[in-house]
Design a protein around this nucleic acid. Structure first.
Lengths: 245, 245
DNA sequence: CGGGACCTTGACGCTCATCAATTGCAGTGG
DNA sequence: CCACTGCAATTGATGAGCGTCAAGGTCCCG
């Protein structure tokens, strides 16, 4: 369906893959010429629900998406935040049944690809299979960092760390500067990422604001002094960058 | 240069891969005939340290290994526990520099493979590339579950959930029954998995023991009533099993 | 101008951390 | 065989960090 020239909706995604490994022009062209559709969705729309089966492959073209689970005690935990350029459906490639839900945070555009051609392509082209593996490994690296964040950092450090990560990833995905980035999350959603309550997130953000660590409001964050914030956050970006340092 | 017949040290690993996707006899044979060495290490020995570069590919043949990071405030978080049959070095395949340390929990045997032949093999054989991708996705699924565990479950539920996971994974890796499995972790190490203190882990385990939820001691756990434990744990094994349900 | 998200703030309580002993147990060497 | 050592498990007392409950406040939008 959609096939913009010169910039396909997959451009951000392909550039992200190329930052991790080398894809030939042929490989990129093959990706771009996969049959796909572009879907638009409103904020809060579910792209998948825990338990869903037979999902298509989805790449986020613009906007923000989160992945979460609601527990039997009624609480919710967000396990991932996706930015434009991210591949959303790696976790669904292995198990038939999704274990978490995908939901839009903002109005979004998503590319949908049928699983079969995607699988066929990655079998034909080792470079693409490799890129997907590296993508999955990069995701896993972020999950492990979240485990560390939730396990061993207090509310303030934990919050600061999340902001550093999102700033860095925004910059990496070409969404701007790491010191000024969009944060389309309510304090309740931040709480569900950080394993806190919205009340405590509120106090924590307020504290960071009054210390001049961050400037925050209206869905945007700006960081006056990146070094200061990343020190408070115990943040080391190396878990995000896959290139040789 | 061990090359046992009929059971190669890679048997457990290959069987695990085959549970996730189909490998032809040729594929398996190709894996088995990769040049490798078998290393033995004592408990507490480091296989890799945060910051290390150029690591070889390692598969755990027997024993237990954990992956952890020490934070600047001195605390430690364990982000993974590996059982016999697990591939240990997927995270190192992408970034040159390890972000966490790998350390033996018990005396272990490890297969080491040079990265280059492994990479070459996965480029030649799409099925092997696919198996590695599925392995990585399965790992990531466990990490996300740990995020949920740390973020939104209290000490008792969280501990119960970990035990359910380790029981299930032990059974999956052919190390026995899910209701009676080895747990070669001190209470301090459990605390570093669960984001708690060893004191609190002690009280929690004690509480679970006196409720008859588990029987625990001497590096072993046995579960009198699996249904009861998994209810307390809010445990749903589907995040571990990659097969169609 | 009214309703509905979301943010903000205060008072209070509980889970879990901290600090500090004590006990048990396995290994080691005299 | 029995001190000696060292690590892990256990227990108690106290307190901090964060949760809970409840009540506004603010802003946007119809």
């Amino acid at each position: 369906m959609g096939q913009d020239h010169p910039s396909s909706p997959l451009t951000l995604f392909i550039e992200k893959l190329q930052r991790r490994c080398t894809l030939s022009d042929d490989d990129c062209e093959a990706l771009r010429s996969l049959p796909f559709t572009v879907q638009r969705h409103d904020a809060a729309r579910y792209l998948a629900r825990a338990g869903d089966q037979n999902l298509s492959v989805m790449v986020l073209v613009s906007g923000y998406v989160h992945r979460h689970r609601v527990l039997s005690n009624g609480s919710r935990q967000i396990v991932a935040v996706h930015l434009a350029g991210d591949l959303l459906t790696l976790p669904h490639a292995a198990s038939r049944r999704a274990t978490e839900s995908l939901q839009a945070l903002t109005p979004i555009k998503v590319v949908e690809i049928a699983p079969a051609p995607m699988i066929a392509l990655s079998r034909e082209r080792p470079a693409i299979a490799e890129a997907l593996l590296l993508e999955s490994i990069a995701d896993a690296s972020i999950f492990r960092e979240w485990v560390i964040n939730l396990g061993r950092r207090d509310a303030r450090t934990r919050t600061a760390h999340l902001l550093c990560e999102l700033g860095t990833r925004s910059a990496e995905n070409d969404l701007g500067d790491r010191t000024t980035f969009r944060l389309p999350l309510t304090q309740e959603q931040l709480a569900d990422i950080l394993g806190l309550t919205s009340v405590h997130v509120n106090r924590t953000l307020r504290g960071m604001k009054s210390s001049g660590l961050i400037d925050y409001g209206n869905g945007w964050v700006s960081v006056p002094d990146w070094t200061k914030l990343s020190k408070e956050a115990d943040f080391d970006a190396s878990y995000l960058s896959m290139d040789p340092v």
